[in-house]
Nucleic acid binder design. Structure first.
Lengths: 197, 197
DNA sequence: TTACACGGAATGAACATTCATTCCACGAAA
DNA sequence: TTTCGTGGAATGAATGTTCATTCCGTGTAA
């Protein structure tokens, strides 16, 4: 599928692949999966329609690859180098990392949001999603055990916080504005007060 | 468009229209607008594909009518008979009314969520959305003025709270479970602590 | 000269919508 | 009571369009 070859060859190949993925990401965010035609993706990526099928087995394979890539980017960005220490610190760090990621890669974040649980995601994509949720769960449970976070179903608290985060993004998305830094801080304070014990 | 006639005749007509809307609501929630074929809607509604076009001008007109109907149901349910008094009371009442609505009409709620800001919504549908947001804004601003709710952009706080609400629903949706009453109460308490001054 | 990446026209499937036809309820005539 | 004519609701095969995918001629690098 991916034509493999060393050095230069490889670079050219990667460029087209990258262009296709970037174009698809943008269009899927704007119009959704079924609302986007493959030839449209080709046009935006400035490649022939057939070329897409040199790099991706199908439209579905493309959306799944995109999903996994963005999900892993997100995970790498947010979960790396988490501090130990009190839950308050940990929470602030996580929230702000998520905010940073969303700010730098808004399209990717919205894409993940939009395609969360879509029917065309395959088993591998779903498994990845599950693993990430489990990591968040563990952090939550640990903080609850230390009495720093409210008792209650961890998934509920996580859903609450993640939902609030998305709500903040969406509210600023409506004006095509990036979320101001002050707003992120306010929202973080709100979110912490929501869940702290 | 709607054939008018008294008594029985009228009832039959309404039944088909209703069947089509119910079928479309379910399918749009499951597969999205573009992911749903009109003949599929017809099949689930147990009518001929052509019949749909007796009642709705197009697929787009159908989704818009559905959107407005659900939006107004939501508004009627949530905004009626709001108490005066302290913001704490008002907030609890609103939250719980929203929870009740979502519990009784989950499909409708998810539909609104999914189609929020979709490109095929027409001007009228968008205007309706805007009006509702404005009403919430006014309530928020009033509570801020009385020092009961944190200062900050009203839209931000609303986005936060509504996002959190949706997050709670989504987290329970994943197990096909209705949200337990205790969880709604916990989430309400979290949400209030998030925004209270 | 070979091999292969590429573009974009070609293809067949699936779609939204239309329309010629069927079906049915009802009222009038016998 | 039965029969028949009529209007309009309902239908689903037919239509034209759009789509995902394939195919093939071209250009280019080795």
């Amino acid at each position: 599928m991916t034509p493999a070859r060393p050095s230069q060859q490889r670079l050219v190949v990667t460029d087209k692949r990258e262009a296709i993925m970037a174009a698809a990401l943008g269009l899927f965010v704007e119009r959704g999966f079924y609302g986007t035609a493959v030839p449209e993706i080709a046009e935006r990526a400035e490649v022939g329609a057939g070329t897409i099928y040199r790099y991706f087995e199908s439209k579905e394979a493309l959306v799944n690859e995109l999903y996994r890539r963005e999900k892993m980017r997100f995970a790498a960005h947010v979960l790396n180098e988490m501090p130990g220490g009190p839950a308050r610190e940990l929470f602030r760090t996580m929230w702000m990392k998520m905010a940073k990621f969303a700010g730098e890669n808004l399209e990717g974040f919205v894409f993940l949001e939009l395609h969360h649980h879509a029917r065309y995601l395959d088993a591998e994509s779903r498994a990845l999603e599950q693993r990430m949720l489990d990591m968040f769960s563990q952090v939550t449970i640990a903080a609850q055990a230390r009495g720093e976070v409210k008792a209650g179903p961890p998934r509920l608290l996580m859903g609450f916080v993640l939902g609030a985060f998305i709500g903040v993004i969406r509210c600023c998305l409506e004006n095509d504005q990036p979320v101001p830094s002050a707003d992120w801080k306010l929202a973080e304070q709100c979110a912490w007060e929501a869940i702290r014990a």
